[in-house]
Amino acid sequence: MTAPEPVAATGDSLDPHDPTPVAAAAARFVVVDGVDGMLCDDGTCAPPVPRPSPAER
């Protein structure tokens, strides 16, 4: 059986049977900058984390 062709990091189909390797898939989207936290993960919801000021970065 032939291995699937590698796919580009962005813009691929959201086909559930897409064989994209996990490592490539995690990097496929350009994540728009926002506030850290604000997520529910593993049944818990993280408190928002203030972004550091430019001086603190």
Partner: peptide, 9 residues
């Protein structure tokens, strides 16, 4: 299928 927003922004 290109851009992502993570969390309740």
């Amino acid at each position: 299928e290109k851009l992502a927003v993570s969390g309740a922004q």
